[in-house]
Amino acid sequence: MAYSDKVIQHYEQPRNVGSLDKNDESVGTGIVGAPACGDVMKLQIRVEDGVITDAKFKTYGCGSAIASSSLVTEWVKGMSVEQAMKIQNSQIAEELSLPPVKIHCSVLAEDAIKAAILDYQQKQGKPAVSAAE
């Protein structure tokens, strides 16, 4: 199957690969998996005054999964938490021209950013709770 140019760009030069301190109060971490193929994705955001100032990811999966998470980390920087929450997998799939069999990769990236936001919001709501897993 042929990957689109944008997928290949993100795959060969992924943006924002890495980790943020998951115990930091201003960092939200989302970890999601695709059970059917075994892909795992970790996406983290740093939020300052309601705005996402940094985003990092580590994705172990196919080129489309890596490209989807790379794209999302690029998009969310500078967005408010509310804006980032509205990102839809269809926008990711469209931007990367993902074929139907790879749509689940964009779903994974949407799930990951939502999970990261949720984690951040929970930390803010319950600052006394430690980040025990």
Binding site: I31, V32, G33, A34, P35, A36, V40, K42, K58, Y60, H104, V107, E133
Partner: peptide, 23 residues
């Protein structure tokens, strides 16, 4: 069906703890 990501009748989602372990 383990080849499907469908919420119902698809592959079951593993625990968050396991995904963290995998990372």
């Amino acid at each position: 069906d383990l080849d499907s990501d469908a919420r119902s009748g698809g592959a079951p989602t593993p625990s968050q703890a396991f995904l963290v372990e995998m990372i």
